[in-house]
């Protein structure tokens, strides 16, 4: 490779994780608006025993398919892979790039020179690979999470990060102790509906139905799931279960990001079409995202003494439930104006 490849767009919002930022890169390559795709669907789902200590953890309604679980209306789909030949993991990257795809690879930040955790902290993360120059010993990677990076890194560093065992690290209880093992995602972006008032009404109706469902076979879903999760978290904290508090941080990140992106989606539509009720529903969804901060940060700081943190977790859990309930009522009301 003599000419550096074109740098993919870096897309970032303050409440998202590497999961949304890397999928956004794939969407933007296909000319899609990440807010439309990642912000239309909104749900709550907690799957007991499923949470992994990785920044990109998300409770998949469609097992193994992060893309479809996040954006079921927009033809987004992802598949996890491991290198076909462990002796030559780069072959999978070569093949993907040759086919015009940018693989999203799991990495351990400890080995990436551009990450603040370099040679310091082990943590599972996602980045996009958009070029490979083996003659020069360089891989081109992008990462929109601060400090954003798009450019070459040594292939040796990429391989070390990609194949890391990501050992338990006392500096990071939330994203370490989860082997990376060469995992990577491929992304397909299919047909998507136009964002019209009729489509948004349909989406809002579906989201409300999901939140109000009596039962969810995928896990603790909907408003009932929020209540069960928050009561369980406070209860486990009272019992001194530090693992429950550690899980709340990565699990809550996915839920917080989705609420924030749904809010941005509704606000954009409400502004575009001059529908005040949509903008108000957006604010209520945003309030859910902000209530997640109280739960996540209280849990994170409370790990050393879960029982002491239990009353505050119960308080923030109650606020989170109230925020979801108000937001769902707001969605229902907004749908009536479309």
């Amino acid at each position: 490779m003599s000419t550096p490849p074109a740098t993919p767009a870096l897309w970032y919002r303050d409440l998202i994780s590497c999961l949304q930022s890397t999928l956004a890169a794939a969407l933007l390559r296909e000319g899609r608006d990440p807010v439309d795709a990642l912000g239309a669907h909104w749900e709550f789902l907690f799957k007991p025993g499923d949470v992994t200590s990785e920044e990109f953890y998300y409770p998949c309604r469609y097992p193994g398919d992060l893309g479809r679980s996040l954006a079921p209306h927009h033809g987004l789909s992802t598949t996890w892979h491991r290198p076909a030949d462990p002796g030559d993991p780069l072959e999978d990257v070569r093949r993907a790039l040759k086919d015009g795809h940018f693989p999203i690879i799991a990495v351990d930040n400890f080995h990436l020179p551009f990450r603040p955790a370099y040679q310091d902290v082990h943590a599972a993360h996602l980045i996009v690979v958009y070029g490979l120059d083996e003659a020069a010993g360089q891989a081109y990677v992008s990462d929109a999470m601060p400090p954003a990076h798009a450019g070459p890194i040594p292939v040796a560093a990429l391989l070390a990060a990609w194949t890391s065992s990501n050992p338990k690290d006392v500096q990071d209880a939330f994203f370490s102790d989860s082997a990376i093992g060469g995992r990577y995602l491929t992304v397909t972006v299919g047909d998507a509906p136009e964002t019209t008032p009729a489509f948004v009404r349909e989406v809002l109706t579906a989201n409300v139905a999901g939140f109000e469902a009596d039962r969810d076979t995928a896990g603790w879903g909907g408003l009932a799931g929020v209540r069960d999760f928050t009561m369980s978290l406070a209860g486990r904290a009272r019992a001194g279960d530090a693992r429950a508090l550690e899980e709340a941080y990565p699990f809550g990140w996915g839920m917080q990001a989705q609420a924030a992106l749904h809010a941005e989606f509704l606000r954009a539509c409400g502004t575009r079409w001059e529908v005040p009720a949509l903008r108000e529903a957006a604010r209520l969804a945003e309030h859910v995202a902000h209530a997640w901060t109280g739960v996540r940060i209280t849990a994170a700081h409370g790990r050393s003494d879960p029982a002491a943190a239990a009353p505050d977790l119960a308080r923030h859990g109650g606020r989170l439930v109230a925020a979801y309930e108000a937001a769902v009522a707001g969605l229902r009301e907004a749908a009536g104006f479309l």
């Binding site: 303050d14 409440l15 917080q256 309030h287 902000h290 209530a291 901060t293 109280g294 996540r296 940060i297």
Partner: peptide, 8 residues
């Protein structure tokens, strides 16, 4: 300042 944006 906040450790992630929030409201209370």
């Amino acid at each position: 300042a906040a450790e992630r944006r929030t409201e209370d």
